[in-house]
């Protein structure tokens, strides 16, 4: 087995880690999708309550999106902020 530069090894592993961290987008995407679908149903059932529904939807999306942002943050920290 050829010897490997430990720095390159760490860089490669942190790139893989960043990729895994970005998978947090899965959950956020599913959550936002469900919330938006339900909001569309609610608007079509009760068009006069549209303003309330939209503001609730935006808040809900912000909460479900937060998890994706944490994943993104981990990815950014791994790639841009060099720990070694």
């Amino acid at each position: 087995m050829t010897t490997m530069d430990p720095k390159a090894f760490i860089l490669g592993l942190s790139a893989i880690g960043a990729g895994i961290a970005a998978l947090a987008g899965f959950g956020a995407g599913i959550g936002t999708g469900i919330a938006t679908g339900k909001a569309v149903e609610a608007v079509s059932r009760q068009p006069e309550a549209k303003n309330d529904i939209v503001s609730t939807l935006i808040i809900g999306s912000a909460f479900s999106e937060a998890t994706a942002i944490y994943g993104l943050l981990v990815a950014i920290l791994l790639i841009i902020v060099k720990l070694v």
Partner: peptide, 16 residues
């Protein structure tokens, strides 16, 4: 924490 991380994360992602 969540308020600031949300704002920072979204804007930083857009910049990147």
């Amino acid at each position: 924490v969540s308020l600031s991380l949300r704002l920072f994360g979204n804007i930083t992602a857009a910049v990147i």
